[in-house]
Every structure is written in C-alpha cells, then in structure tokens.
C-alpha cells in the first residue's frame, strides 16, 4: 500500500512544517530606496542579516510589473535571501517563478465564519512576522480534527470542540483551545505572540509550539500525558502546567 512504502528505499519524504519566516512587506518598488533602507538597517542590526530567508510581500504595491530581479539582487547584497514572493499580479508571479522563487497568493482576509476544514496534508506555510493584532476574528471548529487535516485561525484564537487526532495540525495567531484530546500538533502564536497559550483536556500532543518555541512528544514529561494542561511561554521557555 502506498502509505507503507519501505522507508529505507525512499530518497526523501515530505514533512508538513511551520517555519518561522520573515516577511518583507514592500511599500516601494524602487530598488534604490530599498537599498538605502537596507543599508541603514544593516548597520543597526548586523546579526539579523545572516543570509536570512525572507518572503517579499508585494501586496501593498499596485504595480503590475516589478523590477523583481533587481530587488532580489539588492536583498542578496545585504545578506537577505529572498525565497518567495507573496501577492502581486500574474506577471509578477511569472517572473518570481522565472527567478526560481516560490509564489504565495496574497494573504486572504478570512471571513469570521465557522467553516469546515480543507483536507490537504499539513503543508508548509509561512508565518507572518507582523506584530500580534488584538485578538479578534477567532474561529470555532466543531468536531474531530483528523489525521491529514489542518485547521487554522490566522487571526485570533482557535477553539476546537472535539479532539485533534495524531497527524492533524491546529494553529492560531492567538491561543489554541482544545475541548478534547490533543494528539496531533498544536501551534499557538504563529505570528510571534508570546502571550498565546495552548489549552487542552487531554495531552498527548505530537508537537506543542508557542511563538516558535516548541516541544515534541518525547520532550514532554510523561507525567503530564493524559492530563488537562495549559502550555505557556515563560522567559522564552515552553512550560506545561497541569490544570487538575
């Protein structure tokens, strides 16, 4: 069966993942202005410019054609590695591809509705570095989140009324609340909100992450497994506290 391919014979496997990623939100398409600003930044925070991967967001620009190649060159000259472009017109998308960059659709503004999930395997997504917005526009999901499903609240909290099964992934800009067993992956504060937390009725999580600080199942104190817990950051350390 396709799911049971002999691991030893595989050259690679695809893994879902959430990587922290810096988004460079362009408000000017002029490579010269970008260069000036970058040069200033570089002298202030040299540590940041270590071939840091960035996503160039052009959503705020209104130009159908961009000097994408020159903008990329300017970035590289300042030790920023553009890996993808977000938003823009079709010609922008085509030239991103021509330059070997990925392209992401513009960040959609999700309507505040209860919606059921799509079913793609957890895919690699890019998290924004924007400052945490006030908690709003959260989402309530009713029912079990099953293996291969991903449910996210790109703004605000995510509430799951049900369990999150192994192989499933739930994520939120704010906190993640699971009124059931958490057996899959839970990521809170995906845009960097350090005050976000994860709450669940029964802890068996494959992965817990708050603002990019994570613990895998094997890092979790076995005493806490099966317990009702709260997961928070304190001093950039992920701490799990039993609620019972």
């Amino acid at each position: 069966m396709s799911l049971n391919v002999d691991r030893a014979s595989m050259a690679f496997s695809f893994k879902g993942g959430m990587l922290p990623m810096t988004v460079m939100e362009l408000t000017s398409a002029d490579p010269e202005r970008i260069r000036e600003q970058l040069a200033g930044k570089l002298s202030q925070a040299p540590a940041f410019f270590q071939h840091t991967p960035v996503v160039l967001s052009v959503e705020k620009l209104d130009e159908p054609h961009l000097a994408l190649e020159r903008i990329c060159a300017v970035c590289r000259a300042h030790k920023l590695l553009p890996v993808a472009v977000r938003g823009g017109s079709d010609p922008v998308k085509q030239s991103a591809w021509a330059l070997g960059l990925g392209w992401f659709p513009p960040q959609e503004i999700k309507p505040r509705v209860l919606e059921s999930v799509g079913n793609e395997a957890p895919v690699e997504r890019v998290a924004d570095e924007a400052p945490p917005a006030a908690i709003k526009g959260g989402r309530i999901h009713r029912g079990t989140v099953r293996s291969g499903q991903q449910v996210s609240a790109p703004e605000g909290d995510l509430v799951v009324v049900g369990s999150v099964n192994a192989g499933a992934e739930v994520l939120a800009a704010g906190s993640v609340h699971v009124y059931g067993a958490l057996r899959g992956r839970a990521l809170a504060g995906i845009h960097g909100d350090h005050d976000a937390g994860i709450f669940c009725r029964e802890l068996h999580a494959e992965l817990l992450s708050v603002a990019g600080n994570y613990k895998r199942l094997e890092d979790i104190d076995p005493q806490l497994l099966g317990r009702s817990v709260e997961v928070q950051l304190s001093d950039d350390q992920l701490t799990i506290v039993s609620l019972t």
């Binding site: 059921s116 999930v117 079913n119 079990t144 293996s147 291969g148 499903q149 099964n165 192994a166």
Partner: peptide
C-alpha cells in the same frame, strides 16, 4: 486506526 482517521477526513471533504 490512523489510516481510518485519514479516510474519515477525506469522506468529509472529497
């Protein structure tokens, strides 16, 4: 059980 869970997800969407 894991594979059945995956199938249940597909039944709900595909």
């Amino acid at each position: 059980v894991r594979d059945s869970d995956r199938i249940l997800g597909l039944l709900a969407s595909k």
